[in-house]
Design a protein around this nucleic acid. Structure first.
Lengths: 233, 233
DNA sequence: TTTTATCTAAACCTAAAGATTTAGAAAAAC
DNA sequence: GTTTTTCTAAATCTTTAGGTTTAGATAAAA
C-alpha cells in the first residue's frame, strides 16, 4: 500500500514537448506528486528511470525514435518496482493488448479528461490496474478473440484424434526431439516397431517427416498425456 | 445493442438446487428478465441452451459432474450469441483467467451482493465484460505474470541471439519444416551452403538435429523476421 | 466366428540429414 | 593494413530417417 507521507515520484516521457509541459503542470497542481524528470526521448527516459527509480512513469507509447512497446520491455528488464502508465492517442485493441501484456499498469487516452490521468496515477500507485471501461472492453474482446482462434485451430478437423494411444505416445516423444533408438528404449519396443508407428503417424497427419509432425502437433493443441513414460521401470 | 421491448431470456445452471432457486427468485423480481430454464446438471444445461438459445446463461463453474470450464467450451462450440456469466465461490486467479479465456462475459462471486448479479446481466447484455474490480485486478495480475514468465524464457541467455542474419533466415525456414533443397531454392544459394549454415546453427544452439533446433527456436521466442523470403524474385 | 484394429517386428532399400575439413571472397572491425 | 566475421561452396563420409512390404499375436467388434 501507498505511504501517504511520501510524495509519489513521477517521470514523464512524451516526444511532444508541448504535451509534456501540459501534463507536468497538471500533475504539479497535485501536492502529493513530485515530477522528478521529464524528457522527449525514449532512450533518455530509460536513463532517467535508472537514475531516479520513480514510483510512476507516464509514457507516450506512440513515439518515433524507439516505440513505446520496446521501451516498456527495456523498463521491465530493469526489474524495478516502477509502474508504467501508457499514454496514447489511439484506442487500438492490439496496442492496448500488447501494452498490458508488456506490463503496463494503466492505459489512458490523450483525449480523456485530465482528471482521469490523476485517477490513473492514484489507482496504479495503490497496486491496481487502471483501464477505463471503453479500453477494458477493447482489451477483453481482443483477448477472447485471440483465444478463440487458438481454440478453433486445435478443434477443426484435428488429425491428432485419429492417432491410437501408442502412436500418441510415440508422437509425444517425437515432440521432445528424441531419435528412434531412444524412443525404442523408452517404450521398450524394437526400433523397427517405432519406425512403423512413426510412418503411420506421418500418414495420419499427412506429413513426410518428423519436423512437420512435431509442428503439426504443437499447432493443433497437442498435450502430453502425462501418463506416458511409465512403461520404463 | 439491447432491445428493451423484448425480455432477456435467461438460463440458470447450478448444481446447488437451493442456490438455483434463490437466483431464480431474485431475477424474477426484475420485470425485464425471463428465466426460461433452470437445471442442476451441466449436461442438461447444454441441452437447455440448444433448445432455447437464451441471451444470457448464469452458470456455476464449480460443478462435480462436468466442470464449468468444460461446459463453457461445449457452449462455445454451439456458436450461438448466448453470453455466459460465470458464478463461482472462489476468486482464484487461475480460474478467473481460464473462464474469461474460454469466453465468459462475466464473473461474479456468490458472496457478492445480489445487486451485482443484476448489474452483471445488464452490462453483459449490452455487450460489455463484467468483472468486478477485485476480480479484474486478479485477472490482470495473472495475465501479466504469465506474460512475464514467457518473456523471461525468451530472454535468459538466449542462444538465438548468437545467430547471424543469414543463419536466422535459414532457421526460419527450418521452423516451417522445409528441407535442404527447398531452402537452397528459396534463398538462392547452393544446398551445401545451406548445410553449412545449418551445422553452424546446430553448434550455436547446442543441438544435433533440426527437430531440436526448431523446438529450441519455438520455445525461446523465435519470431519470423518477415523481411525474409524476398530474396526469391 | 470371422473380420477389423492395434501392436509388434523384420528385411530391404533410397533419400536425406548430419559431421568434418577446406577454402575463396567481401565486408567490417581493429 | 591486417585480422575477424560472414557468406559462400565443395568433397567426403557416416548415420539417421523415411518408404514399402510382409507378417504374427491379440483383443475387440461385427
Amino acid at each position: 500500500m501507498r505511504d501517504f507521507n511520501k510524495k509519489l515520484r513521477v517521470v514523464l516521457i512524451d516526444d511532444n514537448a508541448n504535451h509534456l509541459r501540459g501534463i507536468k503542470e497538471l500533475i504539479n497542481l497535485e501536492s502529493s506528486y513530485d515530477v522528478v524528470g521529464t524528457t522527449t526521448s525514449a532512450n533518455l527516459g530509460i536513463n532517467l528511470i535508472k537514475k531516479y527509480h520513480p514510483d510512476i512513469v507516464l509514457m507516450d507509447i506512440n513515439m518515433p525514435e524507439k516505440d513505446g512497446l520496446q521501451t516498456l520491455q527495456a523498463i521491465n528488464k530493469l526489474n524495478l518496482s516502477t509502474k508504467v502508465i501508457a499514454l496514447s492517442g489511439y484506442d487500438d485493441a492490439d496496442l492496448i493488448y500488447r501494452a498490458i501484456k508488456l506490463g503496463a499498469k494503466g492505459y489512458v487516452l490523450k483525449t480523456m479528461a485530465s482528471v482521469k490521468l490523476i485517477n490513473a496515477i492514484e489507482e496504479v500507485a495503490n497496486g491496481k490496474i487502471y483501464l477505463p471501461s471503453v479500453l477494458s472492453t477493447r482489451f477483453f474482446e481482443y483477448f477472447q478473440s485471440t483465444a478463440r482462434e487458438e481454440e478453433k485451430v486445435s478443434e477443426e478437423e484435428n488429425l491428432l484424434t485419429s492417432l491410437t494411444m501408442r502412436e500418441y505416445e510415440v508422437l509425444e516423444l517425437l515432440t521432445e526431439g528424441i531419435n528412434y533408438k531412444s524412443i525404442a528404449g523408452k517404450l521398450i519396443i524394437s526400433e523397427t516397431t517405432v519406425k512403423t508407428h512413426v510412418n503411420n503417424i506421418f500418414q495420419k497427419l499427412q506429413v513426410n517427416d518428423r519436423t512437420n509432425a512435431v509442428l503439426y502437433a504443437l499447432s493443433h493443441g497437442f498435450k502430453p498425456s502425462k501418463k506416458t513414460a511409465m512403461t520404463a521401470v
